[in-house]
Nucleic acid binder design. Sequence first.
DNA 1: GAGCTATAGTTTCCAGTGTCAACTATTACA
DNA 2: TGTAATAGTTGACACTGGAAACTATAGCTC
Lengths: 164, 164
Amino acid sequence: MEKDFIKIYNLIQELSWHFGAHGINGECCGDLSLVEYMALKKIEDSENITVQEIGNALNFTKSGASKIIDRLENKGYVTREISPENGRVCFVNTTAKGAEIASEIVKKYSAYVYEMLKEQDKAMVGNIEAVLKILVDSANGLENNLNGKFTQGGGKMTVFEMNS
Amino acid sequence: MEKDFIKIYNLIQELSWHFGAHGINGECCGDLSLVEYMALKKIEDSENITVQEIGNALNFTKSGASKIIDRLENKGYVTREISPENGRVCFVNTTAKGAEIASEIVKKYSAYVYEMLKEQDKAMVGNIEAVLKILVDSANGLENNLNGKFTQGGGKMTVFEMNS
DNA sequence: GAGCTATAGTTTCCAGTGTCAACTATTACA
DNA sequence: TGTAATAGTTGACACTGGAAACTATAGCTC
């Protein structure tokens, strides 16, 4: 049983590398880095998201998030707008150009995924989607742990125990 | 059908972010960055791997690979050794310390994966593993395309076509 | 074997990136 | 009104990986 989880972890890590910043060959798409692209996606998904929230969602400090938004703004993909309710807060939203480039990147990589999986039958495609959903949901469920006792646990190696 | 692949892509991207350099909170484990860890894994998996081969495997230039190995060597996790057959070639191998830290990291994240999936029954765990294997294998199968016509295709957005 | 070319690796210079700490500006509250 | 808290920005800094130049070895041709 334990070995299964090691295998699963190694597979996830390899897949993640493939779709990560270096697996995609350093550049994500056009003039966007992977980090910028992920921020753009996040901004597109949530209306009037704040700088802080983007930082929290992507695991950046607020100053890091601010600079990522700087770059996206300079490229014309997002806008900053001071909240009418609270003058300290800054709403970030995508421009039409930003939404378009994001959708192009999604299209490009979806076509890549199609190429990966085109030999699978319809049932398996559904199964793959279901499995990924389980993985993503459960990873999001542990996010608090990951940022709390897990990663910042003072360098401790093993926090979770497998009692298999 | 097309929508399925978009969903699958988005799920993969989210999972990859979670297990990528920023999802794991900037630090991978102890004194290793994700890049260093992946290189260490690769070195451990293949005896007498060369600097160039590490670079190719992880999508780095040879100068980049050389520096990553520098860091691993300075930390005492790998050794360089000139090939007896060819004085230009440099064999890289893990030290006992390097192998140990790599295995500790694997253990740590496998426990994390266990925590993610502990509510799944045995059949589903097997299914998850099978699905990930399909994804990793098919991604590796397209690797040449990804580095060839796909990513370096001169900025073209869509190279693969979905004819669904 | 001298000389040219190819190959493996290293090093130098450089640009990009994210963090920390200090700062501005606004809000909340006593 | 004054103090603390909050959101965001900025500047200095360290780290990282790439491009190009460089060293050193190997292979090949004459």
